[in-house]
Amino acid sequence: MLQTNLKHVESRNDFKNLIENNENVMICCGRMGPMCLPVYDVMEQLEQGEDYKHVSFRDMEFDSHDAAVIRELPETKGFMSLPFTVYFKNGKLVRATSSIQSSEQVTSILDEAFKK
């Protein structure tokens, strides 16, 4: 289990329910490692602020069996750095990034992909 303050996606079912029932979803799939922690930190902060209330922020343990739903997406093929971060709009994958991302990089994707 990841030790973050984000809600976790723990199974395939969780993942399916999440993207089917929420318009804007960002999931960071990683470990408690150096390149992942800064992304969780950015997400926790955005979740607490006022500007991204329309986005559901989650993380998922990269090594869990069910994280295959993210590891094996066609859009993450070729990714070779943790974390894999994926963005879903109305159940459809709209962006995916590999490796560490800054607050600015994350918010620019959120602003573009999940326009209010």
């Binding site: 490692g33 150096p34 390149m35 992942c36 070729g78 990714f79 070779m80 750095s81 990034t97 590999s98």
Partner: peptide
């Protein structure tokens, strides 16, 4: 970057 280029061996070595 992240698609073959890495700056962290401990993070990405197992790929």
């Amino acid at each position: 970057k992240g698609k073959g280029i890495s700056y962290c061996a401990t993070c990405d070595g197992d790929f």
